[in-house]
Nucleic acid binder design. Structure first.
Length: 800
DNA sequence: TAAGGTAATTTTTTT
DNA sequence: AATTACCTTA
């Protein structure tokens, strides 16, 4: 790698393999009137220009051409961020400043890495191996760790654990340390450890107070024990892939220096999403040549809840003194009104570096806001509108519905199914996360590596063989005492009389089967081996016998799984890929509506975007507010900004006045974000004619929000919907018929906030009779005769 | 051991 | 409402 025979080429744009210079000259010849072709080409050459730089705006160009020293590129939504990144790499290579393998380019997702690879491929013609150091933080971390595994106490073929394996391991550790798993569930502790790892903290670096706050003061001990277990299994979790790099570099300065020297140029995508560990990782590497370019957008930081530090981007200039800061503010995606709405909203955030997106596109349609009686109606409305668009030849693949939480998807999907509207859900449980795939993987893992205890445990009784808890306990005891893997322990125990005859023979059959498969690794093609294993183990049989609805789908997934193995040369190669790239390759191209969460939508764009559920509590999400206060609100606002900026031509916001939350109907008020939108770019839509009869108050009374949007009337409506509308809507029926809403509102706003009082006897449809014990706005605390003390919404309680 | 019932628990998600 | 984890019982 250090000595590349092809590396000596001169830094001369005209001679790069893609023919950039020639292409430019020809292009000019076509459109040029005069005879100065050569002169102009030479001039361009002198300035180091090639046609990959053409079409960049001045800021983009600066971001590409400022190659030396630290650079922070603040790239707003739709400003050509990826283009800048890829062009920058092409530029570095084309001008001879670096060879592809001198450049470290990190992304967060495999998808982003893949896209960047493809785009660089078309720019400089170097495919695949051309950029060995382009990848996700974790992929590159893995690559580095495999080279120096022994220095951090691992073998170079260590396995990378997924989340479920992690949890399984944590459970064992908890058991070992005699911690009550009821009080301290494995999930919580795993999460804590993840958090520490995200902050770059090894077990001995965790602040003592913090470590003691977990598991009766044993937090630190558990972390240490967990790491020890990982080491004995020759395994790492995702956090380790970065954390152990840090440890390696801190303890072996020579190795660090090697990497610092190797990476002449460093590029980071989505910098606003980096956590502390990633930040430290980068900072160590960047100490060498200090040519680090970070591209990000503080206004699109939406992963604070999983450890991303917006601060990293906010203090870049402080960390890298003398850094050049380039702002990309010209948006090439959205029309004027959409951009104005998004900008106006995000301007309400206080902690931001500040950018003002602008466009030279036409204003276009205004962002629409519409209300619905309840979430079902909202779904009907939205689906109806999509159908209308579709009949007007709007491709469905250019329509997206972005929701705050996945629970919102259900009603929308139901409606789509009813109408026969083709749709696809993006995100959700990943292919490799599905139970059947993890099971199949576990079979392959135990076959490839007989010491993989976690895999063994997962499938020893899947399908059910009668090897339950008791058997596993015995195996564990033996394995621990002898310090051998479970499979080996099992192999020994079937030679003794420790186990009951029946269990013994089943276990023997299982152990022998695994042995057979392991032998077959050498002789049998790996896809055939996989098929054999799934067949012989009875695993496919298990699903074939399963009568549940999704069994067929699972079998289909298994087939797809085996098929996907074909792309890899052997079993080991496949397993390596799978541990890091946990995603399915989705069939693209079909004309379908996309349905996803706002988080999943980052980086995507569509002509038309629907954003349902803009209600306080849902969006901004109450929990985010409760847990992170103002910072939480700002992150929610950034999420709204991300949602709006996904739209090229049309953005449609909506809210429902009643929504089912955890199965209970609650009345809701429109999101505060709606009020923060610049009124000039917003159009409030009144009820379309196709509303189902009587379902909407907009039908009979067209103007509760109507043209008076933003006026005191709107404000008042907002202030009162919570207490006002819901009351008429006891679950199970619309008692009393339609109301004159406007009159009701006025009356309400001057009247008392609640018609309940402490000590009043009330009746709740679900919890039955009870006594009011407290009132907080529209929430009542009620001591129910049967159900005990509950917090309920007054709309479901009747005086009684 | 495994099925079946009950109680608890609900954001966002990548690697 | 729906999923899921846990606990009881056959």
């Amino acid at each position: 790698m250090q000595n590349d025979p092809d590396a000596g080429g001169p830094p001369f744009p005209g001679e790069t393999s893609n023919g950039a210079f020639q292409g430019s000259a020809q292009g000019s010849a076509q459109g040029s009137a005069g005879g100065s072709i050569t002169a102009r080409a030479m001039a361009g050459l002198r300035r180091g220009q090639a046609d990959y730089l053409e079409g960049l705006n001045p800021e983009q160009r600066r971001a590409v051409e400022t190659t030396e020293g630290p650079v922070l590129v603040l790239a707003g939504a739709g400003t050509g961020k990826t283009r800048v990144l890829t062009t920058r790499i092409a530029h570095l290579v084309a001008t001879g400043r670096a060879r592809p393998y001198d450049i470290l380019a990190v992304t967060f997702t495999n998808k982003a890495a893949r896209e960047m690879k493809a785009r660089i491929g078309t720019l400089i013609g170097a495919e695949g191996e051309g950029m060995p150091w382009l990848g996700t933080f974790h992929a590159i971390g893995t690559k580095i760790l495999r080279r120096h595994a022994e220095l951090v106490g691992l073998k170079s073929d260590f396995t990378i654990l997924g989340t479920d394996d992690q949890l399984r391991l944590m459970k064992q550790v908890i058991l070992d340390q005699n911690v009550d798993e009821k009080r301290w569930p494995a999930r919580a502790l795993s999460h804590a450890i993840d958090g520490w790892k995200n902050r770059g903290l090894l077990p001995d670096q965790v602040p003592a107070g913090e470590a003691q706050a977990f598991a009766f003061g044993k937090g630190g001990a558990l972390y240490t024990a967990y790491q020890a277990r990982l080491a004995t299994l020759n395994a790492v979790d995702f956090g380790d892939l970065l954390l152990l790099c840090l440890r390696l570099w801190r303890t072996h300065a020579d190795i660090l220096e090697g990497y610092q020297r190797r990476f002449r140029y460093i590029l980071v995508d989505e910098y606003q999403d980096t956590n502390v560990a990633q930040y430290l990782w980068l900072r160590l590497l960047a100490q060498g040549h200090r040519n680090v370019a970070c591209v990000g957008d503080d206004d699109q930081s939406i992963y604070g809840w999983r450890g991303a530090e917006v601060d990293n981007i906010l203090r870049f200039e402080h960390d890298f003194p003398g850094a050049a800061v380039v702002r990309l503010e010209r948006n090439y995606r959205s029309t004027g009104h959409i951009l104005a709405a998004a900008s106006g909203l995000i301007a309400k955030n206080e902690s931001r570096l500040g950018k003002t997106l602008r466009t030279e596109d036409e204003p276009g349609e205004r962002v629409t806001v519409s209300g619905a009686w309840d979430s079902e109606e909202e779904a009907r409305q939205l689906a109806g509108e999509i159908e209308t668009l579709h009949t007007k030849k709007h491709p469905l693949s250019e329509v997206a519905v972005l929701v705050r939480i996945s629970a919102q998807m259900r009603e929308i999907e139901d409606r789509f199914v009813q109408l026969g509207l083709p749709y696809r859900v993006i995100g959700g449980p990943r292919f490799y996360e599905r139970a059947e795939i993890r099971d199949a993987l576990a079979y392959l893992r135990i076959t490839a590596n007989s010491a993989d205890d976690l895999a063994f445990e997962r499938i020893v009784n899947t399908p059910k063989r009668g090897l339950g808890d008791a058997t596993l306990q015995a195996l564990h005891a033996h394995a621990r005492a002898e310090r051998v893997p479970l499979l080996l322990a099992a192999r020994r125990m079937v030679e003794t009389d420790e186990l009951k005859p029946k269990v013994r023979s089943t276990l023997r059959a299982f152990v022998e089967a695994v042995g057979r498969w392991t032998k077959a690794v050498e002789t049998m093609p790996h896809t055939e081996l996989a098929r054999t294993i799934l067949e012989e183990s009875g695993y496919t049989d298990m699903w074939q016998k399963d009568r549940s609805a999704d069994a067929a789908g699972r079998l289909e997934n298994l087939k797809e799984f085996v098929r996907s193995m074909e792309e890899f040369p052997d079993l080991a190669g496949f397993l390596e890929h799978v541990s890091l790239v946990m995603e399915a390759t989705e069939a693209e191209g079909a004309d379908k509506v996309s349905l996803m969460t706002l988080h999943a939508a980052k980086g995507l764009e569509f002509d038309t975007v629907f954003l349902p559920g803009w209600e306080d509590g849902l969006f901004p999400n109450q929990r985010a507010l409760d847990e992170s206060g103002r910072a939480g609100l700002e992150e929610e606002r950034r999420l709204a900004h991300v949602g709006l900026t996904r739209a090229r031509k049309r953005a449609r916001l909506s809210f429902a006045v009643n929504r089912r939350i955890h199965g209970l109907w609650s009345s809701t008020i429109p999101s505060r974000f709606l009020d923060e939108l610049p009124p000039g770019s917003v159009e409030v839509i009144e009820a379309p004619a196709h509303f189902s009869a009587g379902a909407s108050r907009f039908d009979r009374n067209p103007a509760p929000f109507g043209s008076s949007y933003g006026t005191p009337g709107w404000q008042r409506a907002q202030a009162n919907t919570g207490g006002g509308f819901g009351r008429d809507r006891a679950p199970g029926g619309r008692s009393g018929g339609p109301r004159e809403i406007e009159g009701e509102l006025v009356a309400r706003s001057s009247g008392p906030a609640s018609s309940f009082a402490d000590g009043m006897r009330v009746f709740h449809t679900k919890f039955g009779p009870g006594t009011v014990a407290g009132i907080d706005g529209n929430k009542l605390t009620v001591d129910f005769d049967k159900a005990g003390r509950k917090m309920v919404l007054d709309s479901f309680v009747q005086p009684g």
